[in-house]
Simulated scan of single mutants.
Amino acid sequence: MTNHPTIGLLIEQLQLFAPDTPCVGHIWVADDFDDVAPELTADEVLATIALADASLDADTSLSWYFLRHCADTILAAREEKN
Results as ranks from 00 to 15, higher is better:
M1V: 09
T6E: 12
I7A: 13
I7R: 14
I7K: 14
G8W: 00
L9Y: 07
L9M: 12
E12S: 12
Q13H: 11
L16G: 08
A18T: 10
P19Q: 09
D20V: 06
P22L: 09
P22F: 08
P22Q: 09
V24D: 07
G25Q: 05
H26N: 09
I27R: 12
W28T: 08
A30K: 12
D31I: 02
D31G: 07
D31P: 00
D32N: 15
D34I: 00
D34C: 00
D35P: 00
D35Q: 11
D35T: 09
V36F: 10
V36N: 01
A37L: 03
P38M: 02
E39S: 14
L40H: 06
T41W: 05
T41I: 07
A42L: 11
A42Q: 11
D43T: 09
E44F: 02
E44K: 01
V45C: 08
L46H: 09
L46K: 08
A47V: 00
I49R: 01
L51P: 00
D53Y: 06
D53I: 01
A54C: 01
A54R: 10
A54V: 00
S55R: 11
S55M: 01
L56Y: 15
D57I: 00
D57E: 11
A58I: 09
S61W: 07
W64R: 10
Y65W: 06
Y65N: 04
L67N: 04
R68D: 05
D72M: 13
T73V: 13
I74C: 07
L75D: 09
A77I: 07
R78T: 15
R78Q: 15
R78P: 08
E79C: 10
E80D: 12
E80S: 15
N82E: 15
